Amino acid sequence: MKKLLTIAVAAAIAAPMAASADTTIYGRLNQNLVHEDNGTNTEWDVEQNASRFGVKGDEDLGNGLKAIFQYEWSVDSANAGTFGGRLAYAGLTGGFGTVAIGRQWTPYYGSVDKTDINQVNGMNDTYIGTVRVGKALAYVSPNFNGFSAKVALVIDDAGALDLGDDFSDITNVSLDYANGPLSVGVSYLAFNGAAAANDGNQWGIGAKYNFGNFAVIAQYEDADLEAYNTLNGAAETADVDEFAIAGEAYFGNNTVRIKYGEVDKAADVEHWSLGVQHNFSKRTMVFAEYENNDTQGVADDDRFGIGLRHDF
């Protein structure tokens, strides 16, 4: 009976989409077995990292214009538990670029956080920016010989991101260059708070360069006190900045990664990690990773994880 019910639910989801050949159902399961020693507790746990389920597609409107959409949920795949919101937007794309409205990836994340390369949960510890944001109106320019620009406005009234501005509570602009082995991005976030405690700015830059079987990656971020606390719900007492450098080596279907980074704040954080990954195919991989976090005034936090990821 359970199997029949599962088939019936899948059919109910897929049937309306069959009318549109440009709609895709996709997802990811990333399951991790993790050992952590934080100086107080030492334990094993089954975790997941960014597992998700989604639908996306487009409709040809003619004259080079398309409607696009994406709806994506986070999935607690370690417990087969609750769904959470990741992406939900609709937009138009054509020769002018792309305009979208809803919950989206921030331009800042795509341009700056290039050292987000680990597969085990919780190993992107130096990044101080934002990843996705709701109530956003965004524009992405066409590509001009490798250059592209992105603009996003967060427009919130009485919500969690309402900073008191009549129009745009947060403004995010990015400029990217990607050509051959080099990709570089720079981004700026302005927090337009009516009160001084919610006013401020943050900027970052990230770059990756591939040469032969190797790649080097680096990023740097700087946030003033008000911007950092608004974005992270924190209570820091001084401006915050971070940097991270990483390297990857590719040997056939295998990748070796190493990363080092620091966060300069009231309690400084020093982070390094090492990992290896094997791709069985374009959709299935196994991996093992280790990281050490040294936070000023706190015992070191060591994490080791092995995992399996499948994309569909």
Rank of each mutant, 00 (worst) to 15 (best):
T6G: 11
D37M: 07
G159L: 07
W73F: 15
V240F: 01
I155N: 11
L61T: 03
Q202R: 11
A266S: 12
Y177A: 09
Q202E: 11
H271L: 11
N145I: 09
Q119Y: 13
N210C: 03
R52L: 13
N145M: 10
F280R: 08
K2A: 14
V276F: 05
T237Y: 02
T295G: 03
Y188N: 10
V9P: 09
D176R: 09
I13E: 04
G185I: 02
A90M: 13
R132K: 12
D165G: 07
D169P: 04
A235F: 04
D176T: 12
K2P: 03
A246N: 08
G64M: 14
G94T: 13
V9I: 15
K3N: 13
K56W: 02
L61V: 05
D113G: 06
D156R: 04
W203N: 06
A14Q: 12
A190I: 09
A19N: 11
N210W: 01
V276D: 06
E43S: 15
D294I: 01
S74N: 14
V263C: 02
V240C: 02
Y209A: 06
G94Q: 12
Y127M: 09
Q296A: 14
G84W: 05
V186S: 10
E291H: 05
Y209R: 06
E291Y: 00
N172I: 12
N254P: 00
A8T: 14
K56G: 08
A88F: 06
A21Y: 02
I258N: 02
E226R: 02
N254G: 13
T171V: 12
L231Q: 07
F312K: 07
N201M: 04
G247F: 03
A234S: 15
N79V: 08
F191V: 05
A138M: 11
F251Q: 12
N254R: 03
D169C: 05
Y250W: 06
S20W: 10
F304D: 02
S51V: 09
G102A: 08
V256Q: 00
N201W: 02
E270M: 09
G97A: 07
I217R: 01
T171Y: 01
A100V: 15
G85M: 14
T93N: 09
F53P: 03
R132C: 05
D169H: 01
L189Q: 06
D162Q: 10
A215C: 10
V173H: 03
M1R: 10
A90F: 07
N201G: 11
D224V: 04
T40P: 00
D169F: 01
S183I: 01
K114L: 15
D22H: 10
V9R: 09
H310D: 11
D224W: 00
I7P: 00
I306A: 14
Y71W: 11
M17T: 14
A244W: 00
A50H: 13
G110F: 00
R52W: 04
A136F: 01
D302C: 02
A218D: 02
H278K: 10
V186D: 03
V173I: 15
A227Q: 01
T237M: 08
S20D: 15
L92T: 04
Y89W: 12
N30G: 09
T82C: 00
